[in-house]
């Protein structure tokens, strides 16, 4: 059965997520105001500028109703800025930056550095039989994860430390990279399959 998935379209790369989800047979609704959430069975929060999206969530009145839905169990996938908006602790954010705080991780904004430090890397994702190409753009860095959070992929930092780049806790899945910027649909597929 076709699922109806909302893509938060206040700012950022919402189009690529919509395209990926539509390729997988989902019906996609763009979400900009609270009324757009009607009928949405799952939601994607795309990459973009988390400070801007946070401000627009508030000014459009979407923050509160969406926070309630996520808390009540709405499945949500957040990529890059989406990860920041869902994380419990945000380091190096703006003091007035809002977060849904629905996954027990601490992330550092632009933790990998500025744009000249942006990169691609092959990732081994648990459950996938071949590597997934991860595109990291001014990406957030996961500083710590609560044990209740299931890490699905990590990346090795300088000094050999493994840092989480894809993880899940209950109805919330987040990645610090951009699965929507590659043709590989497996992460979107995993997200949709988990709705069943």
């Amino acid at each position: 059965m076709s699922r109806t998935v909302g893509v938060l379209a206040l700012q950022g790369a919402s189009r690529e997520h919509s395209t990926a989800l539509e390729k997988l047979g989902a019906t996609v609704l763009q979400v900009r105001v609270p009324e757009d959430l009607r009928g949405v069975e799952a939601l994607v929060i795309p990459g973009g500028e988390s400070t801007t999206i946070s401000m627009l969530l508030e000014s459009s009145g979407t923050f509160e109703p969406l926070a309630r839905l996520i808390k009540e169990g709405l499945p949500v996938l957040g990529t890059c800025a989406g990860m920041i908006l869902l994380a419990k602790d945000v380091i190096d954010g703006r003091p007035d930056q809002k977060s849904f705080a629905q996954i027990d991780i601490a992330v550092r904004r632009n933790g990998f550095g500025r744009q000249i430090a942006s990169f691609e890397s092959d990732l081994n994702i648990s459950g996938f039989t071949s590597p997934f190409r991860g595109v990291f753009i001014r990406a957030p860095l996961v500083q710590s994860c609560d044990p209740s959070v299931e890490t699905l992929a990590t990346i090795e930092l300088d000094g050999g430390v493994q840092s989480t780049v894809l993880c899940r806790q209950g109805n919330v899945t987040v990645s610090s990279f951009h699965p929507e910027l590659t043709e590989d649909l497996r992460i979107h597929q995993m997200f949709l399959e988990n709705l069943d």
């Binding site: 700012q11 950022g12 973009g48 500028e49 691609e120 595109v135 990291f136 001014r138």
Partner: peptide, 15 residues
């Protein structure tokens, strides 16, 4: 190229 244009993609819908 994907990494370089990627930031432009993230700025879409913004000022």
């Amino acid at each position: 190229m994907r990494v370089k244009r990627g930031l432009a993609d993230m700025l879409r819908g913004g000022v």
